[in-house]
Structures are given as C-alpha cells and as structure tokens.
Amino acid sequence: SEYETMLTEIMSMGYERERVVAALRASYNNPHRAVEYLLTGIPG
C-alpha cells in the first residue's frame, strides 16, 4: 500500500518502525511532516 511504501522509505532513513508509525499518525500520514517530527520530536 501507499502507507507501507511511506513507512518503508522513512524506515530506510534509520528510524524504527514504531517511531515512524507514531510520527505518521501524528502528522495524519503526511510523510514530510512525519520526518520533521522524527527529527524534532513528536508534539504532544
């Protein structure tokens, strides 16, 4: 799925699956924002 592709691409940058899933959830599946959250911390 498109979601799995995003997940895999972000994980390939060296992040753990659960952190990527949390970041995508926080960003409403916006991959650019999710990466930003992984770099700066997930808000909330």
Rank of each mutant, 00 (worst) to 15 (best):
E2L: 12
E4L: 12
M13K: 06
E9D: 10
E2T: 11
L39H: 07
T8V: 12
R33C: 11
V21M: 10
S12F: 06
L38M: 04
I42Y: 10
Y28E: 15
M13H: 05
E16Q: 08
A22H: 07
L38V: 02
V21F: 04
H32M: 13
Y28A: 15
H32T: 14
L24P: 00
L39Y: 05
N30Q: 07
I10K: 00
S12W: 06
R19Y: 09
E36A: 09
E16R: 05
E2D: 14
I42E: 09
E4K: 08
A26P: 00
L38D: 00
E16P: 14
T40C: 14
T5A: 14
H32Y: 12
S1V: 12
P31K: 14
T8H: 14
T40A: 14
N30D: 15
G41W: 12
M13Y: 07
R25N: 09
G44Y: 10
L7K: 02
E16N: 08
R25H: 10
E18W: 14
Y3G: 02
A34T: 04
Y15A: 01
A22F: 05
I10Y: 04
L7T: 03
A23Q: 01
A34W: 03
Y37T: 03
E16Y: 05
R33E: 08
G41C: 08
T40I: 10
T8M: 15
T8Y: 14
I42H: 09
E36N: 06
L7Y: 03
P31D: 02
E16L: 07
M13L: 13
Y28T: 06
M13W: 06
A34C: 04
H32R: 12
R33G: 06
A22R: 08
I42A: 09
A26W: 09
A26S: 05
L24V: 02
E2I: 11
N29R: 04
L38K: 00
N29Q: 06
S12M: 12
L24C: 06
Y15V: 02
I10E: 00
A34R: 01
R25V: 08
L39F: 06
E16K: 06
T40N: 15
T5K: 15
E2P: 10
S12K: 13
V21R: 06
I42W: 11
P43M: 11
A22E: 13
E18D: 12
I10T: 01
A26L: 11
T5V: 12
S1Y: 12
E36I: 11
Y28D: 15
T8F: 14
E9K: 13
H32L: 15
A34V: 03
S1L: 13
N29K: 04
L39N: 10
Y3N: 04
A23S: 03
E4I: 11
M6D: 03
G14T: 01
T8E: 13
N29F: 11
A26F: 08
T8D: 10
G14I: 04
G14E: 02
E4C: 14
L24A: 01
T5G: 08
N29Y: 11
M13P: 00
L7S: 01
I42N: 09
T40S: 13
R17F: 09
Y3A: 03
M11A: 04
L39M: 14
S12Q: 11
M13F: 06
R25I: 10
Y15M: 02
V20P: 00
R25K: 14
V20S: 02
L7V: 15
Y15S: 01
E36Y: 14
G14R: 02
P31V: 12
V21P: 00
S1M: 13
Y37K: 03
E9A: 14
E36F: 13
Y15N: 01
E4G: 06
P31Y: 15
G44S: 12
G41P: 06
S12T: 07
R19C: 12
Y37W: 10
A34Q: 01
E36H: 13
L38W: 03
R19A: 15
E2H: 12
N30V: 06
M11Q: 04
G44M: 12
S1A: 13
A23C: 05
A22N: 07
R19W: 09
Y15F: 15
E2Y: 12
A26R: 07
N29H: 06
E9R: 13
G44T: 13
Y28N: 15
R19L: 14
S27I: 05
T5I: 13
N29A: 05
E2M: 11
V35L: 15
R25A: 14
L39Q: 13
T5F: 11
P31G: 05
L24T: 00
M11I: 09
V20R: 00
M6N: 06
M13Q: 06
T5S: 12
S27N: 07
R25G: 06
S27T: 10
L7F: 04
E36V: 10
L38I: 04
